[in-house]
């Protein structure tokens, strides 16, 4: 076997080990990668930044533990941005794995960074409802009929009827919101919020998705989507835009920025693998032709 033939038939477990090392070592350094917001992310940031104080924003966390590394930094950055701008934040989820993630957002971001904000006045946790796009459709016409109780704040605040919550009073349907921000990783997600939420109610929608889904949603931009965060890079770009506009978030809003360094190294490794694999393939093909 020539060198190139050996290269082309490497046991895939060596490739697994290589990629694990390529991700682990940069991650251990704790360095962050410089990131410049792309136009599609900047448009989303600008759309939220332009909302006047008191505007009602619906944030839907439609993802599970498998995509937390990509989606939670997006949700955290958007939540920080909304509360910094004194927007009223309504947090829901249409994924069964969403409630614990809402708890994480409430405790680690909202209550930690904004202790002066009041639950029920500045932000509210409405929890999970079953039905996928059926929930979105029902929210168009009867928001409070779906959420008769909120989800509370764990042991600190038990669930209560939404009729007692001040910020729920003006909400009849999705039309009563000024912006909808779904953060999703599949079905149901941003696409369903555009189709059943934004296009029906006429409310602006801008969100974040995993990188797998991001290219599929570009056709909706900009008519049906005000902006889109795509994957960890999108999250890092939003964090960069946020810290640029509001430097006080420089330390707290850099989770995705730190993850971009191992991400960048891994990208280069994958490109290297593709190039190497093709070199091995063409070399073996040329050798076979010579024979």
């Amino acid at each position: 076997m020539t060198f190139f033939e050996k290269l082309g038939s490497v046991d895939r477990r060596w490739i697994f080990l290589f990629i694990a090392v390529a991700v682990t070592i940069p991650l251990l350094t704790g360095r962050s990668a410089p990131v410049i917001p792309s136009p599609i992310v900047q448009h989303l940031f600008d759309a939220i930044d332009a909302l006047p104080p008191g505007s009602r924003v619906l944030l839907s966390l439609d993802f599970g533990p498998s995509t937390v590394p990509e989606n939670l930094p997006m949700a955290s950055a958007v939540a920080r941005h909304c509360l910094k701008k004194n927007l009223a934040l309504y947090v829901i989820t249409i994924w069964a794995t969403g409630p614990p993630i809402i708890n994480t957002l409430m405790n680690d971001v909202i209550r930690a960074d904004f202790p002066d904000k009041v639950y029920g006045v500045d932000y509210v946790n409405l929890g999970y409802k079953v039905g996928n796009q059926g929930v979105i459709q029902a929210l168009n016409t009867d928001f409070k009929g779906q959420y008769t109780m909120d989800a509370g704040l764990g042991k600190d605040l038990a669930p209560q009827p939404t009729s007692r919550i001040a910020m729920m009073k003006p909400i009849g349907g999705l039309r009563d919101f000024q912006f909808i921000v779904p953060i999703g990783s599949g079905f149901p997600g941003v696409k369903e919020w555009v189709q059943f939420g934004g296009d029906v109610s006429g409310v602006d929608v801008g969100g974040g998705v995993t990188a797998v889904e991001a290219p599929l949603l570009y056709p909706y931009y900009p008519q049906q989507l005000s902006g889109l965060m795509g994957g960890l890079l999108g999250a890092a770009e939003y964090e960069a835009a946020l810290t640029q506009a509001y430097p006080e978030f420089g330390e707290s809003a850099k989770v995705a920025l730190v993850r971009m360094f191992p991400q960048t190294v891994a990208h280069l490794v994958i490109v290297g693998f593709v190039v190497l694999g093709n070199i091995a393939f063409f070399a073996a093909k040329r050798r076979a032709r010579k024979r």
């Binding site: 991700v23 251990l28 990188a211 797998v212 290219p215 991400q263 891994a266």
Partner: peptide
């Protein structure tokens, strides 16, 4: 071109998930 862009983003997505797990193990 669209599929190539999707492949690039798919690689990004999968690596992100691995980063999350390695952070947990750390």
């Amino acid at each position: 071109v669209a599929f190539g862009a999707s492949f690039g983003y798919t690689v990004m997505a999968r690596i992100s998930l691995l980063i999350g797990r390695i952070e947990f193990l750390r």
